[in-house]
Design a binder for these strands. Structure first.
Length: 225
DNA sequence: GCGACAG
DNA sequence: ATCTTGTCGC
């Protein structure tokens, strides 16, 4: 699962990062469908399992989900996650009957050493607005965060603000929100907050994770269908 | 050289 | 990410 030249992937990241759009293409857009994407692994890490869920806005009701399994081509290397997960995400994306207007991806967007986390990389591929929602930090520094849900501080890296650190839920570790593609930093944070429903993760990401891991919450949803 | 390091 | 039971705190 190696055989690849990291210097070459690094050059690709620098090239792709220059194509990322960090502002709202449609200032007043009101999405009809919002999606969530997540990737898990099985068979001792040799197979990537990507899940994507489609939810209505503003109800945030699950209306479609798909799962794709693809052979892994690269081991996990911090900073190169997108090359490991994008093939599987691209596979589920093709399976979707409904294409979303906005997509949340589990992982960093531009909050990456070279500005190309998986949310940005996949956003360029799908060519739609994407937001990166990571459960931990890859790079950057940030000031102490308030304990109240909703409090947020800037994530800075080399003198630049690359994202926000958001306390989405009381007594829970914060989320690292960043622009994926075709959206502004302010919108990325605002849409994340608008998709919160009492849990640490915004609904799209939470359900994508539930589907990818076949969690009880998803099983109950299936039974009610 | 040493420590950090999305999922 | 994944392997996995109980357990501490609200």
């Amino acid at each position: 699962m190696r055989g690849v030249d990291l210097a070459q992937l690094k050059a690709l990241q620098q090239q792709y990062a220059g194509k990322v759009v960090q502002y709202d293409m449609h200032k007043t857009f009101s999405p009809r469908f919002i999606a969530g994407g997540d990737v898990g692994f099985e068979a001792q890490g040799t197979v990537a399992r990507a899940a994507m869920v489609i939810m209505t806005w503003p109800e945030l009701e699950l209306v479609e989900y798909q799962v794709a399994r693809v052979p892994v081509t690269l081991t996990y290397i911090p900073g190169y996650l997108s090359f490991r997960e994008c093939p599987a995400l691209e596979a589920v994306w093709q399976m979707l009957t409904i294409k979303p207007d906005l997509l949340f991806i589990d992982g960093q967007g531009i909050a990456h050493p070279r500005g190309l986390g998986v949310a940005s990389h996949f956003g360029l591929f799908a060519d739609i607005p994407t937001i990166g929602v990571a459960k931990s930090r890859l790079c950057g520094e940030y000031a102490e965060l308030g304990s109240e849900p909703g409090s947020a501080v800037a994530l800075q890296y080399q003198g630049q603000t690359i994202g926000s650190v958001l306390r989405s839920k009381l007594r829970c570790n914060p989320l690292f929100i960043s622009v994926g593609h075709k959206i502004s930093a302010a919108s990325a944070l605002a849409w994340t907050q608008q998709c919160l429903r009492g849990y640490r993760l915004p609904e799209p990401t939470r359900w994508a994770d539930a589907v990818a891991s076949n969690r009880p919450s998803f099983q109950r949803w299936l039974a009610r269908q």
